[in-house]
């Protein structure tokens, strides 16, 4: 399993490096803007770089998930898949390594981007000296959208956990849909459309199930959603492995 994990990391590290590189450039621009705060250039750079960083943070986590699905797709549908499927490893291990690698990557990148965001906000208001004012503003903004989560480490942690876990669940749904497409629908008419419909349907099913869970308010609700998503991911993993083991021809 560790060997499989090693090669899954090798297959995807380039994309992560690119995301990291772009983040680095945007962060440098932001820091430069902070240094030039009183000039007109600085005033232009700061908002642009903040917007870019926010986009990269969301985009980066998404790209990592999407690339994982694309790698799986390539392994199942091109000659390079022989490399993977001729090894004496079961589908449970193969899919397991892929999902584990992706889960860890999503979690790490989520934590990384959050830490970076937190650092940047702190830096910015240390520079402008209105930190307390900022938190009040953010609180007002959240209240406007009726988000009843306190801005405490626990509250923020719960938000991150719930959003990353539900993104991971979405990725595992894509895994299952793609495995069904490659193993069962391969060569059949409307394969692409059927796979897409299946993907959407499974997402709706997941949301329905998550909503049906007994949930409280605020943090509790977020934790329930996060844990529910993880459980759903595990179900997708088992279903994916069984189908792959029985039906996949590469």
């Amino acid at each position: 399993m560790t060997k499989l994990l090693k090669y899954e990391i090798k297959k995807t590290w380039l994309t992560k490096l690119i995301v990291l590189g772009i983040t680095g450039v945007a962060e440098l621009a932001f820091l430069l803007g902070l240094c030039l705060k009183d000039s007109s250039a600085g005033e232009k750079i700061i908002p642009v770089s903040i917007l870019t960083l926010v986009m990269i943070a969301f985009g980066g986590v998404m790209v990592i998930g999407i690339q994982s699905v694309l790698t799986l797709h390539r392994d199942m549908n091109t000659k390079q898949g022989y490399m993977l499927f001729m090894t004496p490893r079961s589908s449970y291990q193969i899919v397991g390594a892929k999902m584990l690698e992706n889960g860890i990557s999503i979690a790490l990148s989520g934590v990384f981007f959050f830490a970076l965001g937190f650092l940047d906000i702190t830096l910015m208001f240390a520079r402008y000296g209105e930190l307390a004012e900022l938190w009040k503003r953010i609180r007002e903004l959240l209240d406007m959208f009726r988000v009843e989560v306190p801005i405490t480490p626990a509250g923020i942690g719960a938000v991150i956990f719930a959003s990353l876990a539900s993104w991971l669940a979405t990725v595992t749904i894509a895994y299952l849909a793609d495995i069904i497409s490659s193993a069962l629908l391969n060569g059949k008419k409307f394969n692409g459309i059927l796979t897409f419909v299946l993907f959407i349907a499974l997402n709706i099913l997941m949301n329905y199930m998550l909503r049906a869970l007994p949930s409280g308010q605020g943090i509790t609700q977020l934790v329930v959603i996060g844990v529910g998503s993880l459980v759903f991911s595990v179900i997708m993993y088992i279903a994916s492995s069984i189908l792959m083991e029985r039906y996949l021809s590469v």
Binding site: K3, K6, Y7, K10, K11, K79, Q80, G81, Y82, M83, M86, T87, P88, R89
Partner: peptide, 26 residues
């Protein structure tokens, strides 16, 4: 030990990496 007629190595691999891969799995 199966050898397919089409080339199947990962595109990022050197000849040494190919050996390491087999060493890791077989």
């Amino acid at each position: 030990a199966y050898m397919s007629t089409e080339p199947y190595f990962y595109s990022w691999m050197t000849i040494r990496d190919v050996g390491q891969y087999y060493e890791d799995f077989f």
